[in-house]
């Protein structure tokens, strides 16, 4: 398998009182060709900030502190605005959670797709318009000729998300980053969109990074999964082993707190306490204060990655004599 993207020791954060506070701390992973990599975690775990840094879209005040992202021979770290513009949409594209606020309300759907095409490719407006129509057909929009002339408010949530996907894929990017693409949608529409994403991936052979908090969506579409907690990766595994035998106590807690539709129990187990805030992180393992299996060492020293049954897990529970691994 070829590696299309590599994230190396990425650290993203804010500066507060002359101190660098990390929101994403020392995150490393890679993305294979034509795979779907899931990134799961609860709100505030840094998954959205990480995905924004992949596109160079960090909000004001949030800074890239260290580390690098490599796609092909490009190193994103030293990118200027113009470099980013060449990459966005062409190599890496993104779709967001709320399709209404990511589409421009005063331009027609057609113009928004055409704009994307014209900014990256040397084609005429006419050709771009034909391509836009093809894209709408690809994402399964009924009566695409009419939709081309319509405005975002005339479409439903599911249709808007399809348009977002059409715009994101217009220039054939190698990598699609999908940040909670179905969270704002109903289950029946969610099923349609997930089906569409799987379908298009097969056709275009692209790699997807899917950011979500929903383990059901992960089970549905992902090949490999990264679990994040408090700005760090705590576990990386292929999707089947993650569901069969989660290794990290946090992943286990997360799995058990989900109501299982096939197995009934009277009470759900839950993880006590809440996620610590950035700038106020525990000294040792960040999950230690909430961990049912924490021992003395966990509170003093942050753990390193160990391999256990093919999964990589950042936890002291997995024997110490093994070598540290790099993701």
């Amino acid at each position: 398998m070829t590696n299309v993207m590599e994230v190396k020791n990425l650290r993203v954060g804010i500066r507060h009182d002359d101190e660098d506070i990390a929101i994403v701390n020392d995150v490393s992973f890679h993305l294979n060709k034509a795979e779907t990599l899931g990134i799961v975690g609860e709100s505030g775990c840094g998954k959205s900030m990480m995905s924004l840094s992949l596109m160079g879209l960090l909000p004001a005040g949030v800074r890239w502190q260290s580390g690098d992202i490599v796609v092909d021979d490009l190193q994103f770290k030293n990118f200027k605005t113009r470099d980013w513009r060449n990459v966005r949409g062409k190599k890496v594209s993104m779709i967001f959670q709320e399709p209404m606020s990511s589409l421009n309300p005063v331009h027609t759907i057609g113009n928004q797709i055409v704009e994307m095409l014209l900014s990256h490719e040397d084609i005429s407006k006419k050709v771009a318009r034909v391509r836009a129509l093809e894209m709408l057909k690809l994402v399964g929009i009924p009566r695409p000729e009419n939709v081309l002339k319509e405005y975002p408010f005339q479409l439903s949530g599911g249709m808007r998300q399809r348009v977002m996907i059409a715009i994101a894929l217009a220039c054939n990017p190698e990598i699609l980053i999908a940040d909670e693409p179905t969270t704002a949608l109903d289950v029946t529409i969610q099923a349609q969109i997930l089906e569409l994403m799987k379908d298009i991936q097969k056709k275009l052979k692209m790699s997807i990074v899917l950011i979500t908090h929903d383990l059901g969506v992960v089970a549905e579409v992902c090949d490999r999964v990264i679990v994040m907690y408090a700005g760090e990766i705590v576990e990386e595994a292929n999707v089947v082993s993650l569901f069969d035998s989660p290794k990290h106590p946090y992943t286990q807690g997360l799995m058990e707190s989900l109501p299982d539709i096939d197995n009934e129990k009277e009470y759900l187990s839950s993880i006590p306490g809440i996620v610590p805030s950035p700038g106020n992180m525990p000294k040792g393992c960040r999950f230690a204060p909430r961990c049912p299996m924490a021992h003395e060492r966990c509170h003093i020293e942050p753990p390193t990655f160990k391999t256990e049954d093919g999964s990589n897990v950042k936890c002291w529970l997995y024997s110490e004599d093994r070598e540290e691994v790099k993701l």
């Binding site: 439903s156 029946t188 969610q190 089970a219």
Partner: peptide
């Protein structure tokens, strides 16, 4: 339409056309 609870679980899915 519910997502599966395990990646290997195969679900027969009725995908609804259109919107509410």
């Amino acid at each position: 339409a519910l997502p599966t609870s395990h990646p290997l679980q195969v679900k027969e899915r009725i995908i609804l056309e259109g919107d509410v």
